[in-house]
Design a protein around this nucleic acid. Structure first.
Lengths: 243, 243
DNA sequence: CCAAAAGTGTTGTGAATACACCCATGA
DNA sequence: TCATGGGTGTATTCACAACACTTTTGG
């Protein structure tokens, strides 16, 4: 119950924020050959949502998104892309937010800022899974990774937001090297290939993939690893520092 | 001076609108072999801007964009795409809006809603130039087409907004048939080609262009026209109704 | 008949695909 | 030595660019 103070403080911080504007983040990570997304659960409820937040009066929108991301992942430098604004007239949190307040013993009337309509700016982030330290704030029960095809039910239009983010990521992938930000600093060629296969959701031929990536001349090769596994160890690569 | 009433009424309509949120529209038209954009001038000032507006409390964001577009062009059905949100912390209209108020004899203090920071949602629209009826509202001196490479100075970041819209349009053009919405219902093949050349800013070979477009099987050919010009008249085409 | 419009044929290039094949290496 | 990682060679397909050439048609 000691956390209730923090929740109450948050509930009273409306005057510091831009009203009716929220930010929702689809945070992509890659682990165990799968594309994952972060989701949080509102404390003492069974409502799940995307990590999100609001914009302080004197804060830029992208700046706000970076703050929210850091609060959840502990990472300061994050690959971030705005992808869509969700602004239907009836976009309100009535059910989930009201229940959240009830369950946490907070009374708020219908005019409370948190229960208003919100226009949400969607950002997606690509993070190095191994560098993320999941952080749970005072409003949430937990913060977890989910396989993208196995997400729990999400509040409001958050499932739709994830789909739109994924679609945009796929479209933009071909034109950028952004996928590398999902990998650790060093990686094997087959890890890279699996990543591309996972995002694009199709198989690629190893030989052609290798040729294409190497011909782009953006990787440098380091020593070897996997002293653990049997047989030959794969090479490790790193994205060239000048790209 | 009789319009001052309308301006005053608008200035007092803040309580009907979502605060701190604006919409800016880059309205593209194609005429005289050139890509054009609509700009408006604030009444009694020399400030030019993109056609824009605000979102009513009970109105969806896209719905608001369509309303704004109709107010300017008279068109109800418009091809519309959201492309970016501009949300820097210092995004304010101080100079231009304050001058606008002064020049129109309206006093407003620093806390007035119109002088606050605005997060602007950018939409671009593709319209049939020949169908547009330019409409000037009570706040603006005029509303005019400008060749895209010959825009007047625009307030705030509006020039940047145009560039971002154009860049997005170019990127998305290849994947969609959206360009056709810039043409009248019937058009010649060379008009279509010039349109693509203008947007992509490069020359195309007539023969290859023709072959490619026709092979897509999306056009139907009608009679002829140009009884005016000498020599053979070009065919007229129309986008097939089922695409 | 002439000039512009409309359409076909052909050739070369480069990227993507598919698969056969060879070399390297660590337990 | 053998299974796996790493890499080359090459044939096929396809989209596209470039350009030559023919056909259509209104005045």
């Amino acid at each position: 119950m000691e956390n209730n103070e923090e929740i109450k403080q948050f509930m009273n911080s409306g005057h510091l924020l831009l009203p009716n504007i929220s930010i929702d983040c689809v945070i992509f990570g890659f682990h165990d050959h799968q594309l994952k997304v972060l989701s949080v659960r509102f404390k003492k409820t069974e409502f799940n949502a995307l990590p999100g937040g609001f914009v302080y009066l004197e804060e830029g929108v992208e700046q706000a998104a970076r703050r929210i991301l850091e609060e959840r992942t502990g990472l300061k430098e994050i690959y971030l892309e705005q992808f869509y604004v969700f602004g239907q007239a009836d976009r309100k949190n009535t059910d989930s937010h009201r229940r959240f307040l009830e369950e946490n013993g907070i009374e708020a009337d219908d005019n409370h800022w948190l229960l208003q309509r919100f226009i949400s700016i969607g950002y997606y982030a690509l993070v190095d899974f191994s560098k993320v330290t999941l952080r749970v704030d005072s409003l949430s029960e937990w913060c977890q990774w989910f396989e993208i095809s196995d997400l729990p039910p999400l509040i409001m239009d958050h499932a739709e937001i994830v789909q739109k983010a994924l679609k945009t990521l796929r479209l933009r992938l071909d034109y950028s090297l952004s996928a590398f930000t999902l990998l650790p600093e060093t990686f094997t060629m087959s890890e890279l290939q699996t990543l591309y296969e996972t995002i694009q959701n199709r198989k690629l031929l190893r030989t052609n993939f290798q040729r294409k990536i190497l011909s782009m001349d953006i990787l440098e090769r380091i020593d070897k690893k996997w002293t653990g596994g049997a047989h030959k160890a794969p090479y490790l690569y790193r994205l060239r520092s000048d790209v």
